[in-house]
Design a protein around this nucleic acid. Sequence first.
DNA 1: TATGAATGAGTGTTCATTCAT
DNA 2: CATGAATGAACACTCATTCAT
Lengths: 214, 214, 214, 214
Amino acid sequence: MGAVKTKRMPRAVREQQMLDAAVQIFGQRGYIAASMDDIAELAGVSKPLVYLYLNSKDDLFTACIRREAQALFAAVRAGVRRELPADRQLWDGLLAFFTHTAEHPDGWSVLHLQARTHGEAFAAEVTAMRADIVAFVTQLIAEAARSAHRDPDLPEREVAGFAEALVGAAESLADWANATPGVTARQAAATLMNFAWAGLGELMAGRRWSPPGA
Amino acid sequence: MGAVKTKRMPRAVREQQMLDAAVQIFGQRGYIAASMDDIAELAGVSKPLVYLYLNSKDDLFTACIRREAQALFAAVRAGVRRELPADRQLWDGLLAFFTHTAEHPDGWSVLHLQARTHGEAFAAEVTAMRADIVAFVTQLIAEAARSAHRDPDLPEREVAGFAEALVGAAESLADWANATPGVTARQAAATLMNFAWAGLGELMAGRRWSPPGA
Amino acid sequence: MGAVKTKRMPRAVREQQMLDAAVQIFGQRGYIAASMDDIAELAGVSKPLVYLYLNSKDDLFTACIRREAQALFAAVRAGVRRELPADRQLWDGLLAFFTHTAEHPDGWSVLHLQARTHGEAFAAEVTAMRADIVAFVTQLIAEAARSAHRDPDLPEREVAGFAEALVGAAESLADWANATPGVTARQAAATLMNFAWAGLGELMAGRRWSPPGA
Amino acid sequence: MGAVKTKRMPRAVREQQMLDAAVQIFGQRGYIAASMDDIAELAGVSKPLVYLYLNSKDDLFTACIRREAQALFAAVRAGVRRELPADRQLWDGLLAFFTHTAEHPDGWSVLHLQARTHGEAFAAEVTAMRADIVAFVTQLIAEAARSAHRDPDLPEREVAGFAEALVGAAESLADWANATPGVTARQAAATLMNFAWAGLGELMAGRRWSPPGA
DNA sequence: TATGAATGAGTGTTCATTCAT
DNA sequence: CATGAATGAACACTCATTCAT
């Protein structure tokens, strides 16, 4: 299971092996339950070497978070072509998102479960990437509204709430898809698209569901 | 911060104090990082008493989960009157949900973050309650479809995916609302209602967003 | 299993119930592994009452040792009639001994295993009773030698060694008999009698096995 | 008292130091009363190192039992030359036995007191070695009977009882010798030899002491 | 006479981390 | 570049013992 024990590798390669092992163990066991012993063993190196390269358990975890966050955001970006229509961009982004989370369940666990459960410092790392995604979605919505020539001055807070809800639903569905055998990335994306697109249309059209007694 | 140190209380009272403290510490630090020492201290009792009444860290955590799950579900139920129209019921339920999670952030953290991250046994406790909520929402959607005389035979799987997405979005928004100062329970509920209601309408009308190349 | 829970008993009776329970638990689990909780529960009383009557775990254990030691010595004495011939007395004594240890295995365990394993203070209690028995056997041997008119001045140290070996063998056989199903007290006594009596005869006759190179 | 604090020793050496310390503490205080802290301190190392090398208190105790059992049996074997007459072999074996138990009182305590008092698993370790010794003695008796051309078909059960009594007496005398200042290994061996040899002669001659009323 | 409520002190065990080589 | 040897600090859990009633 662990990396084959090879001697004398360049530092960069060794580091990636360590991060691979760390993501796997952190993702499956959680930050605290993961032991440096286990990570070192899975990486095929001695524990002092892990400390030499990655400094501490905290730093190692942070490095994992950063690597996985960048990988996820990069995957989403790479899936989207900005010249296509907004709904197509949203679809492509969702598809890329669900595909990536399905292919890297441990990384997704690190980002969505573990990092948020063990201290503000770690959570902040994820929050940054999440903000990028939310911003991206927000921009998409605004763009879509503009291109539809409807309600060009959507209240910013409302759009933000929408983007937040959309991203939140996506995250939840990613967990659900990973935990439910037989649910593909396409299905998850289609479900969310159906769920969200009509609401977005109403939003852009300026129609609101009004709470009673407001 | 901790409970006022009072001597010689009846067991039932002490137990609630301990659960209060445990929910707070588990919610803020997570299952593993929470130490029984800290919980006992916050509860204003000695550690052996915690063990005498609650048996073990596992049992204590389980007791927390159960208490918080029941409280949350009870709050949602109590907020809904079944004789009102479906959209009103959904609104009332969401409002009760966001109100409760806002008022009990640690309990919400225990349920939504901690319990799902530390072993199947704990997760199952939450899953049970979540299933109740999803079933409740599913029922609401079906009811709404019936009362609207539209597409009375919605495909079950699609409704389930919708309910899942709706509950997932609600959970994510609860985190977001708790983490974002200035966001009220009403606002969170309104955002989600706007986000979801139109999509539900489309669903009931049998209209779907179709993925490209399908 | 434990005593029936009855309220308001005279102190003496309660104390015996406690000692019964204590002997059972000490005998089966050992001094340290035995918990005051378990003893109190088995005795059918609350823990503070045990402390009220018996003071401390140490005192309770000591009381057990004393009671069992006296009971064992009394049983041996009661089995022997001093007017009979020496070999008959020895036989009767051994039979009484093996019968008692077989009927009170927990008491025997307390005396022979537990008391000697947990500190000098406890061991001393047993040593006292053991010395009584060794003295009794020594006296028997001397008496037998006198009545046989042979070697009336047996060296004291040698007789003591003999008595010690005899008692030691008896103790070992008691353990063996208790641990080996199907071995009766009579069989144990007969084995030891055969083993010892001839050696005693040689001793009294002044014949010795002489170590080489002495 | 404890080993001189030396840094950076090879694992094998440290392990022996730990076993030395453990035998001493287990022998003097018993399995449960012995604390890993005390053992580690006496061994001159930190507690985690004890766990790293010996795994657990259970394993450490088992390792002690095994080492001491092997050492004792090896000492007895080494003391006996099989080509000599049976009584000489018995004498040499007893002498080696009492010498070893006198020189390793803690080891003897571990084997004879502690291991038998704290669970079947530990007792079994000792029982195996004891069975070897009993078998050895049984063989000796049979051999002696053969070479004396007397009653070559001794009933097996009786020989076993004899061997049991002999070994039991030896064990008891070892305790006695260790507890009684001034008693040498030679004296203990001579006492037992005198005690047992004549009885063995009677046994081999087919003469029995017969219980009254049988 | 009797007990429910409560704890100080200690147990076995684990883990992130460092040094000497 | 790499590691075997070693530890300080903590954690879950238990137990003999006491107090207030």
